[in-house]
Amino acid sequence: MTKKPLTLINKKNIRVDGRKLDELRPIKIELNIIGNANGSAYIEQGKNKILAAVYGPKEVHPRHLALPDRALLRCQYHMSPFSVKERKRPAPSRRETEISKVIRECLSPSIFGEYYPRTSIDIYIEVLEADGGTRCSGIIAASLALADAGIPLRDLVAACAAGKVEEHLVLDLNGPEDNKGTDMPIALMPTFNAVTLLQMNGILTTDEFEQALNLAVKGCEQVYTLQKEALKARYINVKEEVEEE
């Protein structure tokens, strides 16, 4: 066993993984990596490694679930057995069912489902490695996968958590911080400043809540820029290659 540090934040306000209080974990995004899916994305955020795939719009099976006026949005968030230190049983847990629901509800306002009645749009989020804040990383990847599938979106959905660890307000909590402190994930459509997900686990005062919310919104905006860059990267590369010739 390695010796764990006694505190998560040292006297210089530096966190366990060397970040400042209001710093995001490094994010790496790749798009279009699953050939069989209509759209897909892979994200690495710190130690989080998550795949998202989108299938659809397609015919709904079982048929009776089809909606006559809009597309049916289905979402499955799943953690691989090897994604955490102790093997996770692969059957969907209570927690995963809940996260699937909140992710579905946070993405649905961004999708023009009414354009495609009697169809389904299926989102699969597979957590390959988890280190806190996987629902946020999952939302980021899923929103990009939707855009990659060519599904019309009002806006991309960015997500980020803020919270309180050892009396400090911090941005983008990792695993150890998440376990010890208060965690508040939010999802945002930055163009409209519309919050589509807000959850909290722990205790914050009203003032702290407001500060944490503002911090998380700033985090979301940084994430949003990265999402846009990732979406554009593929096409810009082709354009540059061609124009160099």
Partner: peptide, 8 residues
């Protein structure tokens, strides 16, 4: 010019 979803 290249745009992404949500761009004004």
């Amino acid at each position: 010019e290249l745009v992404t979803p949500g761009d004004l």
